[in-house]
Design a protein around this nucleic acid. Structure first.
Length: 666
DNA sequence: AACAAGTTGTTTTTT
DNA sequence: ACAACTTGTT
């Protein structure tokens, strides 16, 4: 580990007295230095709540003020919502020019660039993007096709296989390395896994399908292999800013490096203590390797916290100070008073839920709005019991993270119809929509798909293949209806708006939905929500890629009806809480075996990541922090009883964390 | 016999 | 919600 160098630049004299924005007044010394250093590589280590977003916004404004064209600024963020929010705030600070700044996630930027340059790398520009479950479906299909699940020894499940393949790419390892290191119990299947991986790649290429990893890999390869395109893009984006750099992986770092070849104007912001995505190949060392890629880099550190009270910071600092490996950084604040965070032991899960719910109601009485309170947890399923309690007490909430709206079956069903029209070679979607029809199972579906693919190669028209199946069997009437729908969508492909097309699909799908699900009224609501989303789009292809890349992450059915739209409690996984803050934060299940999760006990590295997760959760709180855990929890997977509080907060001084016990009132 | 559909116990985090 | 297993249909 290289020693950290702090380079604090002396305050520059204010650029010009006529400027509307008074940077020096509105930013602290370090923030000001960052916002006004416009050229050359820049690394900013920004502690939690240190005004990182604010600094980025001011820097965007400063760049535009200095005459830089907004279109030549590229802002890479973790979610596209984050980018839009920043640009909106920058526009408020300055003017609408800020909205023209290019921004989004690595994946969404890759999507745009690849669609534009697809033909030059032999890619169909109307390629379909596979989300996680789509790519698992493909893998499952190929696994059966290769006869791998009939092996004597059990072959890994589709999720596991997909995880292995993804790790090879994101951690830049060979298949052998990944399997032997993390999945040694499947070492016997190495040869078959190799075969499957090759087949998977071929299948995707043949059907014009790209999974999340392909988007990044293809963009990197495009930039690395084609000098002239690299030049064009590098000249287009003259100023690059990357947020949450601690959660980027090697490929993303390479993309940044390649995009900056002609100018080196790159600024990356991050915090090694908040790196929580290593399962996706991110490594916090990435942030420290940055100076090696750009030797002329200037390094800044933001340590003053504007979010939390001192007692909360004291606790967070104590948790992170036990980290094996960390970079010296100590958050401080001027908000000195505030109450000491509380640790509450509950006798079981129900008691924990009841306590949290009751406390939330109390705080609401005291005037804390519901949307200023959040309940955070390690894994999505850990909030199930609390959700029941909240519903019982009529507390409206939204849940972020975990299962996504887009991943619900009925939404995917509807979209698959639009997808086959956009890319008829997309056999994943064909399979999905065919299986909906009664009487058609995996076998029949495969043979119909084969016929469709044949008709594409022979006549160039996919409907021919479907037609031949429309008579003579018990499912032919249903298939005829499907044919009519797809014919309509295809013939009026260019004249119909995306929302109109979706209307036709829903009309066709509604009877199937009602027959399939008992809870169809809820699902119909979801589809209506999808319809409203679609109305914002002019191009079906944009709609489809956006939905895969940036899925709306709250399901309508999760929302308990409420009169006041904004008055909703937030439930979130810690991962999805990144970058956010609330007046009051509850950390649920701070139980050893849940946070840290049992899965992480084997490796020190994973355990360290769990610690950072706890740190991230704590630093979301502005005023109040409650940490709770139930005892006597039996874990079926390990066969053990969990009763100890999280090792990260055990035996801490009462000054840092006050312990409380729940007394049941009769 | 081949295939479709219904039944029963486990589930990390996400672009 | 998924996979493995079981029952039902053509």
């Amino acid at each position: 580990m290289s020693a950290r160098r702090y380079t604090l630049k002396k305050n520059q004299p204010a650029a010009s007295p006529s400027l509307a924005i008074e940077y020096q007044k509105e930013l602290n010394e370090a923030q000001y230095a960052v916002a006004t250093t416009l050229e050359n590589p820049l690394l900013v280590i920004a502690g939690a709540g240190s005004g990182k977003t604010r600094t980025l916004i001011y820097r965007v404004a400063r760049l535009i003020e200095a005459g830089v064209a907004p279109q030549s600024i590229l802002l890479l963020t973790f979610t596209r919502k984050a980018a839009q929010e920043m640009l909106r705030r920058a526009a408020m600070l300055m003017d609408d020019r800020c909205e023209q700044v290019a921004g989004g996630t690595f994946h969404s930027v890759a999507n745009l660039i690849l669609r534009k340059y697809a033909t030059s790398i032999g890619l169909d520009p109307s390629f379909t993007i596979l989300d996680r479950s789509d790519s698992e479906d493909v893998i499952n299909l190929l696994r059966t096709l290769l006869g791998l699940n009939e092996r004597a020894k059990r072959f890994p499940k589709k999720q596991t296989i997909s995880g292995i393949f993804s790790k090879t790419i994101n951690k830049d390892l060979t298949l052998d390395e990944v399997v032997l290191r993390d999945y040694s119990h499947f070492a016997d299947h190495l040869e078959d896994l190799h075969k499957l991986q090759v087949t998977y790649q071929q299948y995707k290429t043949q059907k014009a399908l790209l999974d999340y990893d392909d988007l990044l890999v293809k963009l990197r390869d495009l930039l690395a292999d084609d000098q002239s395109i690299n030049r064009q893009l590098s000249d287009t984006y003259r100023y690059i800013m990357v947020d949450e750099y601690q959660d980027t992986n090697k490929i993303q770092a390479e993309i940044v490096r390649l995009l900056a070849t002609s100018h080196h104007n790159v600024m990356v912001v991050g915090d090694d203590s908040q790196s929580i995505y290593s399962f996706r190949g991110a490594h916090f060392r990435n942030i420290m390797d940055f100076p090696q890629q750009f030797p002329s880099v200037q390094v800044f550190t933001l340590e003053e916290n504007y979010r939390s009270t001192q007692p909360i910071l004291n606790l967070a600092n104590a948790v992170i100070s036990q980290a094996e490996e960390k970079y010296p950084k100590r958050l401080f604040t001027r908000k000195s008073n505030g109450s000491v965070p509380a640790l509450i032991q509950a006798e079981d899960e129900r008691a924990q839920s009841r306590f949290v719910c009751q406390k939330i109601l109390e705080l609401r009485e005291e005037g804390v709005p519901l949307h200023e309170m959040a309940v955070l947890f390690r894994s999505s399923f850990l909030s199930f019991d609390l959700e029941i309690e909240l519903t019982r007490c009529d507390v409206p909430y939204i849940k972020r993270g975990g299962f996504k709206f887009m991943e619900t079956a009925h939404v995917k069903d509807v979209l698959s119809h639009l997808r086959v029209v956009a890319n008829p070679r997309d056999s994943v979607s064909w399979n999905r929509l065919l299986l909906l029809i009664e009487g058609i199972g995996p076998r029949t579906s495969q043979s119909i798909i084969a016929a469709v693919m044949n008709s594409i190669t022979n006549s160039g028209h996919f409907l021919e293949g479907l037609k031949s199946y429309c008579k003579g069997s018990h499912y032919s009437t249903a298939l005829q209806e499907l044919y009519t729908l797809l014919e309509k969508l295809n013939e009026e492909n260019t004249t119909l708006m995306p929302a109109e097309k979706m209307g036709w699909v829903c009309h066709y799908y509604l009877p199937l939905l009602k027959q399939r699900y008992d809870d169809y009224p809820k699902r119909i609501k979801d589809l209506e929500h999808l319809q409203t989303l679609a109305e914002r789009y002019k191009e079906t292809e944009t709609l489809l890629s956006d939905l895969v890349l940036e899925p709306p992450n709250e399901s309508v059915s999760d929302i308990v009806a409420s009169d006041h739209e904004d008055e909703r409690l937030i439930l979130s996984t810690i991962h999805s809480a990144k970058g956010l803050e609330w007046h009051t934060v509850f950390i649920l299940w701070a139980l050893d075996g849940r946070l840290p999760s049992l899965h992480s006990f084997m490796s020190d590295e994973e355990l360290e990541e769990e610690r950072r997760l706890m740190y991230v959760a704590m630093t979301r709180a502005k005023e109040n922090l409650f940490v709770t855990y139930p005892v006597k929890i039996f874990d079926r997977a390990s066969g053990s009883v969990l009763s100890k509080p999280s090792r990260f907060i055990e035996d801490l001084d009462q000054n840092l964390l006050e312990t409380w016990t729940l007394i049941e009132e009769s």
